[in-house]
Amino acid sequence: MVNAYRDGLKKGLPIGLGYLSVSFGFGVSAVNGGLKALWALLISMTNLTSAGQVAGLAVLAAHGPLIEMILTQLVINLRYALMGVALTQKLGRFPLPHRLLAAFGITDEIFAVAAAERKPVTPSFFYGLMTLPYLGWALGTLLGALAGDVLPASVSGALGLAIYAMFVAIVVPAAREDGGVGWAALIACGLSCLFRYLPLFSFLSSGFSVIVSAVVAAAVMALVRPVGEREGASS
């Protein structure tokens, strides 16, 4: 159990570093939007989501009605529902109280790392995986809110790369073992670039673009190369 927690911690470190630099930016813009530093920290500690928080901040700053806040969060964060279902197929023994707590940690990055695990996901592993991203997200927000310029730009810029480099390190070795995985990732990359650069698709927010690209790529590969009983999303 301790080993599973430590394994999770290790895999969460690059995510934590990435979150630290991303949430730093959120902290800066929260204070610019009229929030106290403590409020910005509270948002990060209770939401743990980048796109949703940025959109929520905009609603707060515009003094929007609560229903607008709820609808905004619903649309932007709906992808977590899909991820939650996918994750249930990877779980080892995972009783309800643990599910209630662990659900809080479902983010794009934590989901992707947990779902790409070869072993069944246990509560210990998942909590280990959540720990550093959570701390990084909270700490980065506070630092950004208190002092927008404690890190030299060259350092915070380089740290921003950590999380993406980690994604590469998850996909590439898996793609070497199963070409289908590589194709799924490549198709998704291609689509998300199309959505980013073709003006036709400029109405898609980046959160939507990720989910649409991923769903299409995974569906295409599931049709072209279905996996057997053994490799499938079983635990």
Binding site: A112, A115, I170, Y197, S206
Partner: peptide, 26 residues
């Protein structure tokens, strides 16, 4: 189909999150 879809999903999510965003991360 659904099992295969869920098997490929995490890698597809990672791919879509990485490109082109990584190019603007620094």
């Amino acid at each position: 189909f659904l099992r295969s879809f869920l098997y490929y999903t995490p890698y597809a999510v990672l791919g879509a999150m990485t490109l082109p965003a990584i190019l603007y991360s620094t």
